[in-house]
Every structure is written in structure tokens, then in C-alpha cells.
Design a protein around this nucleic acid. Sequence first.
DNA 1: AGATACATGATTTACGTACCTCATTATATA
DNA 2: TATATAATGAGGTACGTAAATCATGTATCT
Lengths: 343, 343
Amino acid sequence: MKRVTVHDVAAEAKVSLATVDRVLNARPGVKAATIERVHAAVEKIGFTRDQHAANLAKRREYRICFLLPSGDSAFMQELRAEVESSVSVERQQRTFIKVRDILPFNGVSLVDALDAISAEEFTGVVFIATDAPQVKQAIKRLADRGVIPITLISDIPSSARAHFVGIDNTAAGRTAGSLLGRFVYPAGGKVAVIVGSMLLRDHVDRRLGFEQVIRTEFPGITLVPSMESNDDNTVAEKIVDELLVEHPDLLGIYNIGAAKQGLLASLKRHKRDGQVRVVAHDLTDDSKEALRGGAFDAIIHQDPPHQVRSAIRLVRAYADGRSFLESQERIRIDIFLRDNMPD
Amino acid sequence: MKRVTVHDVAAEAKVSLATVDRVLNARPGVKAATIERVHAAVEKIGFTRDQHAANLAKRREYRICFLLPSGDSAFMQELRAEVESSVSVERQQRTFIKVRDILPFNGVSLVDALDAISAEEFTGVVFIATDAPQVKQAIKRLADRGVIPITLISDIPSSARAHFVGIDNTAAGRTAGSLLGRFVYPAGGKVAVIVGSMLLRDHVDRRLGFEQVIRTEFPGITLVPSMESNDDNTVAEKIVDELLVEHPDLLGIYNIGAAKQGLLASLKRHKRDGQVRVVAHDLTDDSKEALRGGAFDAIIHQDPPHQVRSAIRLVRAYADGRSFLESQERIRIDIFLRDNMPD
DNA sequence: AGATACATGATTTACGTACCTCATTATATA
DNA sequence: TATATAATGAGGTACGTAAATCATGTATCT
């Protein structure tokens, strides 16, 4: 059971090793007929290139830059921790990862960071896109310089980014709507939405999907006009306070952004936790605790470790012009209840 | 920016290459003090062994055998398809995969298959465990022969298997209970459970978890005694027919096994699809269709591609005595609604 | 026919680690 | 002190592919 190597292919096709190499690596200077012969030989003896040997010989290296907001939301912290812990793992596969900080909610800072990256320095850049024309242009410049741009969490669909790693946020909103709708149905009644910022595309999309579903499928439910927390706990707490006072019959809340602590604090103070059905985003320590205690009913989640690994694999795949497994790179819209929480 | 190699470690530690090699590969014949020096040097200059070069030099090969039931449930078919499609991908990483058929629901067939495997032939075996003492003993013999046993989907916890790849089925049952409970609550009323076979540990566990949650958290809900479909559509259809006739006020069904077509057929014939809330297992073409049409409300799922990849990675990790990323190998209990279905 | 471009062969080096052999030096044991 | 044993060094080969160089053969064109 010896391994099938390029030498065997050469023998089988009755050509030299050099020609096999030319064919396999799509180098010029080989007749079409010869190319065919080599391919036939590959098929016949079942040759597959040894990835380890190939990578070693190619002495390929991948340098990836992650641009992460210096904000301190639990979700971002987990993402950052995941990136940092992948540094040593990925180094074994010749992938060198650097993290650069940018200011959160700040398009200019992102544009500056993108413009500061050269193809000599980095193979690809992974970042959370802010939906602004300047960012779009910066992505274009980046791609033109030969750096692979990968958007994470939040996308700019019509930009020059090679790939988006993240969930379909409209679908996530619809999912939240389906859940919360069923939870408060058939009683019917009022449901409120709290967004982080209407400037973030993912938040906007989530709200859109949520309202779609509620309006079309749960006609018994009334939507209370949504408010912006700016992902700030103090603001969120005030919003919920007012909400609970003004609508004592409130049945459910969909919390689109971060600032879950503020929401929880208000619910608890009004002794409405466990009564009002809550669907929120991102499985963090806070929300796990709230799920356990019954204050939250469901969490919509996108797995940070998976997203980080996926982004890294995608940079390598695009750099090599390789294809990749669609199914492995699709980020799922995870639903967590108390009972299917990890740990 | 040159790569840090073993040579650099040798220079830094002021020892020969041979000694560095002895230390890194834990070979005997090195003083404790010298080992320390080498480790210190590794730390200082940040050396990480190049996996590609290492694997190449080691000329390591992994041979993995998947034992799959020849049954034709959609879930098993997807699993099998995934294994087969991974053959060519994994070959590039020197992993050779073979599939062997065994009879479904048949412990003897599994035991025979396990006993027929030698360490010369295979590095590891991946199989769906049937919970029987004979199987447990066969696993022990297998492990003693030096083959790595990995259980998939269904486990025997106290056996000699190296690892279990799959979900916690009690938790899956609880998850189903939480969902269905909330869906039919606060109306209260009757909910029925249909199992595939009480001989399968995963089915038993699911029912257990489901009943736990319903009993403790949704006291308004009455559980209709559960019945066995043996994963047969004709049987399942008959069961549901009787159920719907006997309990016209039935609010929900938890379908634990396969045989979803029978369930659907009966519901449709009685024009109760969309009325009765249904939670079932495994996202297949049938259940996707049913989710879309509103006949099913939620599907509890375990991702076959992920499980196959995980099993393969685990065989390699155990074979090399390496550690692995817990988080990457944990199989999630996925919840799918119409709105977060893939595709 | 001679120049020219194209197609192919023959051969070599490099990648970074594993692993083997043989020689040499340091340390412990009798 | 002689001898056994442990610890280390020096050096080489192999793994399978990539990539380069130089030589040689063949067809094409004016």
C-alpha cells in the first residue's frame, strides 16, 4: 500500500516529472494532448496531491489582520479572545494572525485602518463592516492592492469584499419573530422591540425580519414602536422602565442589540422577569444566567469561534484560489433555550 | 521575517539538533536540566513545530472505518453521503476512509463488524453504538487491540470508546419540551409523544428529558401515553390516526424518531396540520418541507457533516495523542424553525 | 536550410521535521 | 582507576511536492 506520488503519475502518463508538475500546477508550455494524458493518468491511478508536502514545498505563509473594535461588549470580548487563542494554533499551519484595534461605531477609524494595510504585510483582512460609502471605497482600494477583504458579523453586500462571514440578519429577525410570536400567541397583545443602533445594518435587518413575521403571521400581536439603546445599559434600562409603566400588559420584548444588563435590571425591578417573554441576541455569560433563571426565553446566537475559524480558512482558500466547503463555512443562526445551552 | 525552526532552537539552547529533536519528541536520554534549557529556548524565540513538515516526515497515515447501518432513513442517508464525500477531501491529509455496512437495529451485526477490525487495517472505527453488553465487550476488545473506537449519534457511556460524537439526547428532549411547552402554553391541554424504539438509548433519553420539562414546568399540560412507531411510516400513521380520533383536543406532538412521513400523512388527512403544534427531529427534505408549510413548528437537529468531520479529527487526535479544541468538537443541539433553515 | 518558437526531458535544490547511526564526552559505579 | 552507562554531538537520509535551470527535440515559418 504505497502512496501514489507524482512520480507514479509521470510513469503512467509516460512523461517526465517536469511535465507532470507543469500540468498539475497549470504552468504554460504543455500541449493539450499531453495535458489530457496526464489527467488521465491521475484519474487512473488515483493520485491526490499531498497537502502537507505541497505546503511545505510552497513555503506559503498566510498573514491575516483582524480589525476589532476596542468596545467592551461581551460578544466582542469573546470574539477577541477567540482570535487571540487561535494565534498559536494557526501558527502551526503557517498562518500568522495580528489584531489591530479600531474605534467602535466609527467609520473613519475603520477606513484609516483599512488604508494602512498593504499586500506585503497581509494576505487578508477580517473586519466588521460599517455600512458607509467611505468604507465601501476603502474595501475597493484594499482589494485592488491585492489584499483579501473578509467581512465579519456585519456585511456590505455590494462591496468588493471576497466573502462575508456571519449570519443572515433578516432571517435572524424572522426567527426571533417566529419564536416570540408563538410564545405569546394565541393570547395576543403587545410586543416591543429594542434596537442597539439604527446605523448598524445587522440591527436594522433584524428588526425588519422580526416585524415582517409578526405582521404577517401573528395578527393578534401589536408592535410597540421600537427604541434605540445605543447598546448602553443605562439608556436601555430607562427605555424598559418607561415601556413597562406605559404598557402594563406588555407580553414580550425582542432585544436586538447588546445592553442586556439594562433590560434585565428593569425587568427585575418591576418584578416582570419571567412574565414578559424575552428573546435576545448573543449567548454571553449574562444571557446564559438570564436563560437559566427564566428571565430570557430564547437567545439567538452566532458562534464566535466558528466565525473566526471560518474567516481564517476563507482567507487561505481565497489566497490559494481554492474552493471550500460551503456547508462548513455557513454560519448558523443558533437558537438557545435553557435546555440546549453549552456547558 | 524568517520562520523559526528547530535549528534556531538548537542555537538558542546551545545544544545540538539531535538533542532538540530528542526533547521535542520526548525521546529518552536527555538530562532534566537540558530539557529545561530547550523548553526555555522554545519559549523565548517562539518556536512552533511546522505541522506540514512534521506530518510529511512522519509519513503518518490514518485509516478510518465507518460502520453504517444499511437502513434508508433520510438522516442516515445524509450521514452516509457526507462520509463518502469526505473520502477525497481527507485523502489529501493522508486519511483513508472506508465504509462498511451493518444491519440496522442489530447488535450482533455490529459486534461482528467490530471484531473483524484489526489495528493493522485501521487506526480508528466510527460507529453508532447499540446499547447492549455484547457491544460494550466488543468495544473493549477493539480498544485492547489498539484501535480507537469512536461512537457516533448514540453512545455507550461506560464503555471503552475513546470519544462520543453526538448530542446529549436528554438535553435534546428537554429542549423539545421547552419549545412545545411554550408553544401550547398557557392554553394547557394534551400533548403526545411518539418514539421510534425504546431499545435505542437516544430515543429513551429524549423522552425522558421531554417528560421532565413538561411535568415540572408546564403543569397545565397532560401527557398522552407514548407509543412506538419503530421508525415505520405505516405504523406511525396508524398511531397518529388513533391519537387524533381519541383526542380531538390534542394540542401538540413530539415525534422522537424518524417516520415523519406517516405522521404528516395522518395530520393532513385529518386536516389538523398547522393546528397541532409539532416538534420533531432531524432536518431532512421531508421536515424542511413540513416546516415551510407550517405542519411542523420546530425541528431539533444534529448536524451530520459536522459530526463526520469531528469524528475524523478525533481519530487523528487520539492516534497522535494530541489534544483538540473542545468547543470545535462539541455537537450542538440545533433548533430549526422555518426562518433559520439553511438554503 | 536556417532561424525561431514551442514542447518536453533530465536533474537539482529546497522546504522543516523525524529518525537513524556512529562517535565522543561526561558522569556514575565498582 | 578502570569500566560501564548516560548524555550529547555530528551528520546524513527520507518524506512528496514545487520550482528552477539547462539541454534537447520537434514543428513552423520565411
